[in-house]
Design a binder for these strands. Sequence first.
DNA 1: ATATGATATGGAATCGTTTCCATTCTCGGG
DNA 2: CCCGAGAATGGAAACGATTCCATATCATAT
Lengths: 338, 338
Amino acid sequence: MKVTIRDVARRAGVGVATVSRVLNGSGYVKAETRERVLAAAAELGYVPSQLARGLVGGLSGTVGLVIPDITNPFFPLITRGVEDAASEAGYTVFLCNTDNDPGLEAHDVQKLRERRVDGVIFVGTTERRESVDRLLADGIPVVVMDRQLNHADVDTVLVDNLAGARAACRHLIGLGHRRIAHAAGHRSTRTGQDRCQGYREALEEAGIAFDPACVAWGDFTYESGYRVCQVLLGLTPRPTAIFAGNDLIALGAIRAAEDAGLAVPDDLSVVGFDDIQMAALVRPGLTTVRQPAREMGRMAMTMLLQRIRGEAAGPGRRHVYQPELIVRGTTRRREPHA
Amino acid sequence: MKVTIRDVARRAGVGVATVSRVLNGSGYVKAETRERVLAAAAELGYVPSQLARGLVGGLSGTVGLVIPDITNPFFPLITRGVEDAASEAGYTVFLCNTDNDPGLEAHDVQKLRERRVDGVIFVGTTERRESVDRLLADGIPVVVMDRQLNHADVDTVLVDNLAGARAACRHLIGLGHRRIAHAAGHRSTRTGQDRCQGYREALEEAGIAFDPACVAWGDFTYESGYRVCQVLLGLTPRPTAIFAGNDLIALGAIRAAEDAGLAVPDDLSVVGFDDIQMAALVRPGLTTVRQPAREMGRMAMTMLLQRIRGEAAGPGRRHVYQPELIVRGTTRRREPHA
DNA sequence: ATATGATATGGAATCGTTTCCATTCTCGGG
DNA sequence: CCCGAGAATGGAAACGATTCCATATCATAT
């Protein structure tokens, strides 16, 4: 039924070792013998078993990609970038959704270890180090994206959240806004904290006093943005601009503002973060801070491959991307009131 | 370094066969022995190798999911549904993006065969049967989603595109529209053809003559929708409504209409298909035909598991979901002109 | 003519499991 | 007291590759 290397060897009239050498291009093989082996393999429709290959001590040719939820529009692009680089290198990617649930994450990591993956990429997962430690103990390299893990042995790919947040807020300040609120992401994430910090720094450098009431924490979802914006719009004086922790929050905030009878950007300017696909398609277009997500995914996979191949040893490297402000239609110059 | 079943056996003072029986819950094992083995495994942090398990003739515990592009907002939900069901069953999913390129698809399928996946799910791929045939020849079950493959041995999960398209057009007709155009998807896909056919049927049953000029083919992208809509709006008399082949097309069409100075839904009503996340978030909300994508993904994986476990033999089954019309803000009653 | 090093090839061990088969215990019934 | 069936266990043969090591054939330099 299944055709094995032994079948190919028999058909070509050679030993299995020779077949292996031909298929892997290793060792000496006479040109004529190579032809015969290749022909036999093709005729039999031979497909080498990566399971067996992996077992003999080599690599499995697979990596794991652990993300919270592929349904969240921020992750498909990263996933695609990882996949692109993996595919080019002959690698295959296991996709795991954790919903940010530590239990599910542990379950997924356990499965990945059983599958003997050659490496794992974590994106935007909780800061819990347990899973990562277990993998490193197995000698499986790890790359972390969009989160900072103060771990000596993992490579990190992220965007400069501070700079991005500062750029977003400077843009608003430059448009004449003074009362700027921040619809923040999740308080326990470094990403959320950094963006909030960038917001504060931009205010400070413009000489605007920081009002704690202007920062409302939630999580990185549309619903959270909607809820939090309702609170922020109730402040007096009402903010004239909102810097959101990400694009989904921004979209939720815009909807909340409109439902409250406010026009965007006439009555309220809004800036997001990430530049998800939707940001360019909604009307008015969402002004936001762009992360090169696909490129970052590709970079993460590239770094992982270097670790796997032993081309990079030593302490964890860090690759920081500079985000870019994309001005669209949700921000407008604030006309000084009478 | 790596801890194997032999290490666990030694530690527990038993044979490897006994350890295997304990871990798999097969055969006879004394309760006290079981405890000892389990303890030893835990102390050593033993993780069984699925590679070895798969090799001995069992299953690899993996399946392949082949889609055109995870970046297209239609696929994440399906992917998530597949993942959900897979994870519950202890399965892991290989994600492959083909960009609808037969060459890439062949490459991906080759990799999946090398990995000895237990099954493969194709979503919205080209109708080329080659890859599928190869898998079936290997004895690897296949499930196809969102496409019809006239193949005796594959299970199919799809939505009733005819009924969905009819519902969308009846809705427009019910609102008083008579001049309705169709911004169609890709001409060579069954999905595109069926939705066009449903459109024609709805017109016919309403006694509206079919005008070939009112159907413009493209592909299932935003850009295509934009382009195609420009053409349709140039017709005389100008259509008062457009039924789009999917939501991305609809979104592109809306943008084109607005750029042409037309208001949606006042001057032009638009209906989409799929109900991607964006459809509910744009303003005005997109009227569309909803597919239960996550549920469909889950169903595809469930059917695949049944095949893998031999719980379902015989000819290919077919699971057809009934779509649901979701009325939002892009459709409006046509006021009869003077 | 012989030593030498490169070229070619195959046998067999190995990777970490599952599972078949053989063996040893343990009991309850005759 | 013996016997047979179930309970409990371990040894060893697969599974399908890679790779080490041994062996054989050359051509060329000495």
